[in-house]
Amino acid sequence: MNGILLIDLILLALVLVAAVATVESRNLFAAAILSSIYSLLMACFWTSMDAVDVAYTEAAVGAGISTILLIGTLVLTGSRETVRKAVHWPALLLCLAVGSVLIFGTLDMPAFGDPNAPAQQHALYEGFTGQNILKAPGSKAAEDYEAYLATEDAAHSHDGEHAHDEHARHDYFHGHVPNQVTSVIVTYRAFDTMFETCVIFCAGIGMIVLLRGRRGNPMKGGLL
């Protein structure tokens, strides 16, 4: 058992506790705060899973703006849940059925941390992955990766000689911008990025219109 895997397991147990507490809490303010805590813990977990971008989005959206919107709603509606509904059995059964189908679907996926999984093999030597590979030590891919890291260190120890090779070594983008993120976002996915920006701009305008309140009566309604 790997050390980081141990940390992952403890983290997931905490996430489970936070999720159950969010659902079970009858004080709605506490539920909002607990959902924020759930997002923060999920951000930890995503970081541990080597998905730093997802983690940052989770922290900004889940723990930041969602909590503020939830509390804004509570300011308007009050923070006590009055009626406790009984369990809706058909909905519970449907959820269980869909959940078991989803779990059945994951059975074909490679085992967790499997170094021979396609996701691990693809960008193995570009410095993006590695964290999850090292969770399955002793395999050939993990040894290859460690050998690669050793050669990388050796290359960096006498940088003067390799200054010219630097671009040749990292040119995975066919002569585009050497920065990997910029290259993918601006050259390979330029249209995608442009329309994503449009969508986010429209969403921002919509939010401002919705939250601003009525003109001429700034005290009535509106959060901004």
Binding site: M1, N2, G3, I4, L6, I7, I10, L11, L14
Partner: peptide, 15 residues
Amino acid sequence: LNTDIPTLVGGVALL
């Protein structure tokens, strides 16, 4: 554990 003990202890203490 294939991990540094001090960092592991730090992580578990943090959790």
